[in-house]
Design a protein around this nucleic acid. Structure first.
Lengths: 195, 195
DNA sequence: TTCCATTCTTAAGATACCTTAAGTTTTTTC
DNA sequence: GAAAAAACTTAAGGTATCTTAAGAATGGAA
């Protein structure tokens, strides 16, 4: 695949929510930065500030943080046509406390914050699109709070498999466990019990 | 207290984040709606759509939802000078699945969405202010996900007391339990054990 | 002031989930 | 293709939290 096809993937994705004309597509294309990450490579590490929106063209990524006991907790997973970021750092412009990492060799389209914000002024559709994305991110996080309070671990795992059918096979189980908030051993036990 | 003093409370609150001149204050004042709720009265119930931003002038409120087993789960608590809402419903304009309820006789200042959005166009400071509030809401929810994965129930209770010192005394313990994600019996047990 | 409803506590027994440790399987590296 | 590293499984024993049920304390209404 060449860069034009990659850009087309992004345009099609955005077109699902708002309509972009050719002029806007040209403007948007002009601020795109491609970034290729190897497996296990970090896009963001604690102390850095997230300064772009990141669209996965090809590959698989996650964001996670380490608690006081150096335990990993995965906050977000993403594959092709998902956005990945530390949205907190991006929005607040403060230093991240998280890692954003490639789980496979991954190709990203990045939209730098400063140039994107200039585009918002000229192109309300782009502004609307990211407003919707940020709303969705809020809803997704709130859903997790709700789930973590009302569901037990197996129900959460079951929900996860339904919502992320394509992701499950590509991600090690210990990372799924760290997303669900259980130990890998307990997830393994649950899988056996319900199989 | 009279309405002008109540409006002043809101203005002072907003002034902590952005600077409003007299002209803006006049415009903002003109869209304010006061709303008084009795104890246990609902501001929002499932099926309704949140159509205003709601600032607590006096009183205490919470938002919660019921899971499949009719268990209450408290998502947000607020007292004087806090905002309370179902932000998901407000932002997405979809029907709420939550209750937003007064825990005491409560006086609100409401800013209707349609008029507020008109103001955003004229007054970027107001738009910025709510952008910051929504960012903060996102961060707060994400903090809860992180806490629920890394802390045990007593740590969460301890964090809650530090963050919401003024709220703890005004809210029944079973509601705090439903915020922390534990049973009231277990919270009672924890309090005794650590006292 | 009394009564009824609401909230809080206590305790016993049950369950979900964790810790540790060891062995097995799969993936990566050279 | 062999060796090393990473990921997964199993199982035993422990801890955190829940369920149920009953009684005690508190608060609101008449």
């Amino acid at each position: 695949m060449n860069n034009n096809q990659h850009i087309q993937l992004l345009i099609n994705h955005i077109n699902q929510d708002v309509i972009l004309d050719n002029d806007v597509i040209k403007k948007l294309s002009s601020i795109i930065v491609f970034n290729e990450l190897n497996k296990k490579e970090f896009l963001i590490e604690p102390g850095e500030t997230a300064d772009s929106m990141n669209f996965i063209v090809q590959g698989c990524m996650r964001s996670y943080y380490l608690d006081e006991n150096a335990q990993e907790h995965t906050l977000q997973l993403g594959i092709e046509e998902w956005w990945i970021n530390d949205l907190y750092s991006y929005l607040s412009r403060k230093k991240s406390r998280m890692y954003v990492q490639a789980l496979e060799k991954t190709l990203l389209i990045q939209l730098p914050r400063l140039e994107l914000e200039k585009l918002y002024i000229e192109v309300p559709e782009i502004s609307n699109f990211f407003r919707i994305k940020i709303q969705n991110a809020y809803v997704a996080v709130q859903e997790r709070v709700i789930d973590s309070m009302s569901d037990d671990a197996y129900e959460r795992y079951d929900n996860f498999r339904k919502s992320y059918r394509n992701i499950e096979q590509r991600v090690p189980q210990y990372i799924i466990a760290s997303y669900l908030g259980v130990t890998p051993e307990f997830l393994s036990y649950l899988r056996k019990k319900h199989s």
